[in-house]
Structures are given as C-alpha cells and as structure tokens.
Simulated scan of single mutants.
Amino acid sequence: MPQITVDYSPAADAGFDREGFARALHTAVVEIAAARPEACKTLFRAADASAYGYDQEGAHVIVHITFGLLAGRSEETKAKLTETTLDLLRDHLKSDGFVLHASAEVRDLDPSYRKYEG
C-alpha cells in the first residue's frame, strides 16, 4: 500500500517524465496520506490506443491515476492527494501539441487485500 496505477495514452510517451513523476508522487503520498516511502508502488501502463470523442488519436492525451489505499483516510485527505497529483502531472508531462485530459481518484482497498514480497 499504496498501490498506484497510471494509465496513459501512447501519445504522452515523448513528454512524460515518468521517473520524476513517480518520485514526486511518492513524496506527496508520504506527506499527505501518511504512507511509508518503501510502501509506495507505481505501475505505469501505456495504452495500445486511445480515443477521445470523434478526434484522431494523438490530438488528445488521456491520463488516469488510481490510488488504492487502506481504508481510513478522510475525504479531505483523498481530495488533497488527487489535486496534488494532477498538479504534479502537469509539471512532469509536457504537451507536444496535444490536449491533456487528466483525472485521479483514490479508492479504499477491500478488506481482502493482501500482498506478497519475496
């Protein structure tokens, strides 16, 4: 915990500083949601393709960031985390002529959540 997933359009690749974003995001999660630094894990998933309305691929970039956190964070904490995340994304994803559509959400992990490290 936290489990962080970043899904993004392939057109973002050239301008997306994923390493810098993950580092800044992990720092924010530690400060805002009281996570341990070594517990922060981020998975980046570039989509094979994306579509926005009727426009062509590449004219728009879609990024959605999902946090899975253990239950117990306040709604204010969750909102601050998603707002900070979108600010950090703007700092680490430079537009190459595309329109950015970004979103973030925090979900409470189900009580059945378990992890394995080995």
Rank of each mutant, 00 (worst) to 15 (best):
M1C: 05
M1A: 11
M1R: 05
P2E: 04
P2M: 03
Q3L: 13
V6C: 06
V6G: 00
V6R: 01
V6N: 03
D7F: 00
Y8N: 03
Y8V: 08
Y8R: 09
S9Y: 08
A11H: 06
A12V: 12
D13L: 13
A14E: 14
R18Q: 15
F21P: 07
F21N: 01
A22K: 07
R23N: 03
R23L: 05
H26L: 03
H26F: 12
T27D: 14
T27V: 02
T27F: 03
T27P: 00
T27M: 04
A28D: 12
A28V: 00
V29C: 07
V29R: 02
V29T: 15
V30L: 02
V30Y: 01
V30F: 01
E31A: 15
A34C: 00
A34K: 10
A34Y: 07
R36W: 00
A39S: 15
A39P: 02
A39M: 13
C40W: 06
C40I: 09
C40N: 13
K41R: 13
K41M: 04
T42L: 08
L43Y: 08
F44I: 02
A46M: 11
D48G: 12
D48E: 14
D48P: 03
A49D: 14
A51H: 09
G53H: 10
G53D: 14
Y54H: 12
Y54I: 10
D55C: 13
D55Q: 09
Q56T: 12
Q56A: 15
Q56L: 08
E57G: 14
E57I: 00
G58F: 05
A59H: 01
A59W: 01
V61C: 13
V61R: 06
I62N: 09
I62W: 06
I62Y: 08
I62F: 14
V63P: 06
V63G: 02
V63I: 10
H64S: 09
H64M: 12
T66I: 06
F67T: 00
G68H: 02
L70T: 07
L70F: 06
L70Q: 08
A71H: 11
A71W: 01
G72I: 10
R73F: 05
R73Q: 05
E75P: 00
E75M: 12
T77C: 11
A79E: 11
K80L: 12
K80G: 00
K80A: 14
T82D: 07
T84P: 01
T84V: 01
T84R: 15
T85E: 06
T85A: 02
L86V: 11
D87E: 14
D87G: 06
L88E: 06
L88F: 09
L88T: 13
L88K: 07
L88C: 10
L88Q: 01
D91F: 02
H92S: 09
L93S: 00
L93Q: 04
L93D: 04
S95W: 05
D96M: 05
D96V: 07
D96T: 11
G97R: 10
G97C: 08
G97N: 11
F98W: 12
V99C: 04
L100P: 00
L100Y: 01
H101F: 15
H101M: 11
A102V: 06
A104G: 04
A104N: 07
A104S: 13
V106S: 03
V106R: 04
R107Y: 03
R107L: 13
D108C: 09
L109W: 05
L109F: 09
D110S: 13
P111T: 05
P111S: 02
Y113V: 04
Y113H: 14
K115P: 05
K115R: 15
Y116Q: 15
G118K: 15
